[in-house]
């Protein structure tokens, strides 16, 4: 019997592979479809978008979305505002400092978010702890591993030094260099960093929950305690949005490979 089995497997090498693929496909799609159907099904077997309507019209939804949106915009602005000039500078002047800067940006992967929340509570001044905007600084920290890597990859693909020297030699100010030269050349890398940061802020639960701010995921968890359909509907909406962002991101990554080598012009 055993021998028989193994001979069939060697005869059709595709078979085992397909079983894995199907199992994997089921594992990743069943929760997704279950969630969608769960959110639109009513007890008597009919379907309705009632749970979605109920959630969107809830005043808590607007408030949570508004907090999360403000946090996302500010986090993106600060993260990009710090990381793009810093990484550009690393490429043109301070290559030797690259390893230490990269190490620092990777620290948030070693310090779990729950510990970052603890540390913020233990080190920030009271006026900042009382403000929802303290979350922005925590989120910029959390985004650093991704923003650094994305922008660094983008800059590595172009000849930054030549571009900057040429622009400076022609009399451009540093602001002009960043906005008109570096920015457009690493556009897709910057968009990639923005998407990842937005996805991160919209999904972040630990820190906002512990600091008692009702962001989207925190409100979602709260809804889930009394209204399972509503919470599942919210989860579907938020994950679909994040997935769209991430899919856009991976299509950007693919396009990045076929870019014109600007450095070759000089």
């Amino acid at each position: 019997m055993n021998k028989n089995n193994s001979s069939t497997v060697t005869a059709k090498p595709g078979l085992g592979l397909n079983a894995w693929m199907i199992a994997g496909l089921l594992f990743f799609t069943v929760p997704m479809f279950s969630a969608f159907i769960f959110s639109v099904q009513v007890g008597d077997g009919t379907y309705t978008l009632g749970a979605y309507r109920r959630m969107i019209s809830d005043p808590g939804f607007g408030e949570a979305l508004w907090i999360s949106a403000r946090l996302a915009i500010l986090t993106v602005a600060i993260a990009i505002g710090i990381m793009v000039p810093t990484v550009t500078w690393l490429h043109i002047r301070a290559q030797r400092a690259k390893r230490i800067v990269e190490f620092i940006t990777l620290l948030p992967l070693i310090i779990p978010p729950v510990v970052i929340a603890l540390g913020f509570l233990g080190s920030m001044p009271l006026w900042l702890k009382d403000s929802v905007y303290m979350l922005v600084f925590a989120y910029v920290v959390l985004s650093m591993p991704y923003t650094f890597r994305s922008i660094d990859t983008g800059l590595s693909a172009i000849d930054v030094k030549t571009l900057v020297d040429a622009a400076r030699g022609l009399g451009a100010s540093w602001r002009q260099v960043m906005v008109s030269i570096i920015g457009p050349n690493i556009q897709s890398a910057i968009f990639g960093a923005i998407f990842l940061t937005v996805a991160l802020v919209l999904g972040e639960f630990v820190i906002s929950n512990l600091l008692l701010w009702s962001t989207l995921p925190v409100w979602m968890a709260l809804v889930g305690m009394s209204d399972a359909e509503g919470a599942v509907a919210l989860s579907v909406m938020s994950l679909v949005f994040v997935w769209l962002l991430l899919m856009l991101l991976s299509s950007l990554n693919r396009r990045r490979k076929v870019r014109v080598n600007v450095g070759g012009l000089s």
Binding site: S34, G203, F205, G224
Partner: peptide, 19 residues
């Protein structure tokens, strides 16, 4: 790339809806 970044609260509710 998409699923590796899926986690947190929504993931919990997806599985509650399924199993």
């Amino acid at each position: 790339g998409v699923f590796a970044n899926t986690g947190g609260v929504p993931l919990a509710f997806f599985f509650i809806a399924a199993i």
